[in-house]
Nucleic acid binder design. Sequence first.
DNA 1: CCAGAATGCGAGCGAACACTCGCGTTTGTC
DNA 2: GACAAACGCGAGTGTTCGCTCGCATTCTGG
Lengths: 219, 219
Amino acid sequence: MPANQEKEQPRRRQARGERRIAQLLEAAAAVFTTTGYTAASTNAIAREAGVSPGTLYQFFPNKEAIAIELGDRLIHEMRETYGEALAPVDPTTPLEEAVGSAVDRFIAFNCEHPVFFALMHGPDIPGRIAEEHDALHATLLSRIEGLLAALLPDVTPADLTRTAHMCLGLYKAGLELVLAHEGAEREAYVQELKNALIRYLDPLVGTRLGRRDTLRTAP
Amino acid sequence: MPANQEKEQPRRRQARGERRIAQLLEAAAAVFTTTGYTAASTNAIAREAGVSPGTLYQFFPNKEAIAIELGDRLIHEMRETYGEALAPVDPTTPLEEAVGSAVDRFIAFNCEHPVFFALMHGPDIPGRIAEEHDALHATLLSRIEGLLAALLPDVTPADLTRTAHMCLGLYKAGLELVLAHEGAEREAYVQELKNALIRYLDPLVGTRLGRRDTLRTAP
DNA sequence: CCAGAATGCGAGCGAACACTCGCGTTTGTC
DNA sequence: GACAAACGCGAGTGTTCGCTCGCATTCTGG
């Protein structure tokens, strides 16, 4: 016989419940963004949402589940909205354009969902979120690697992997600076991030036709 | 009359006490490195040092004081050993050399004291450490800015500040990757970090004599 | 309209943790 | 050797926080 029913049959939710869940996740996002995951107390999240602790636990079995659900939704939305940001690129596309559009998309997402950065880069995140982050990280790396492979045909795989890691790391550093500023200054940092990535990669694609001297203005 | 004695007259310590303090700080460094500041329990630190919680509190008034003392010693050693790493540079020095030696020094320090990274970049650090980190950060930024000012005479102050922030951010990103690898792969990441910084800065100093085409190998 | 399920509450439980206290041991000083 | 101070211990204290429980209220299907 079947040892057990579903591990958890999806509880029948009323519309009210769905609203509460959304409300709680929004509150959790706010609290996580300002205080980080571990420092955020479930009571604080419930208070932020204007409900009692008991109500919170009506919808989430524990604190980790809140972060997981939030992370799931964010990653889902990210994949859906920006999944193609790193799609294989026509090798004739200028490097500036490829880097610029990818950076713009990811920066836009992170600016719209600041909790994403807090959840993914906090040192105190629960195991499950870390797994998701690692999965996303790996996905991004392989995408970048594929993209670079098309641009840099004569580079060893190990160098390719390392370069991809560098690109992601440099992006992350730039993202932090971008999120720390606003308005015109933020835009300036976005541009600097693009510059850093382009200049880092440009010498590697130097053998391609028409790619010389893109960095220097003509004399 | 003097309102009070010294806020705290330095307690008379025996040699044994000094040894215990060093031992406790070493244990704290280990625990902070592996678990971060907030997740590290004072009992765990005491256990790691092989003493009782009461003994720990014989020498430190609270958990924060442990991190502060550790941070103080690290920053002191850093200033002493590597304070000149960013000293003003002869403008004729090749950019590669200036960047290379600065990166080498800071990387070496961080590899020798991995707890430094954990303490300074954790999101959960106590206020006092954050202040020290900010002070160090500001010092580094102004040093970098001064160094860049010598290399890039015709750049506005705002751009200079932004560029300095970018350099520090890029360094931090590279440091993380360097610390995440070992042996030959670590060395390769050090080189990539240098490349990224040099290539980022090189176009800005393009007008200087003899600084053209340092990035590309001759045809 | 009514039984049962879903929702909502908030006092309170248990564990973890920073920190203390009383007392015994070691060390420096005269 | 005696006295005081520094050292060392570990059970204990107060608090915070994740989470529960019993009960009241609101919704939904028949």
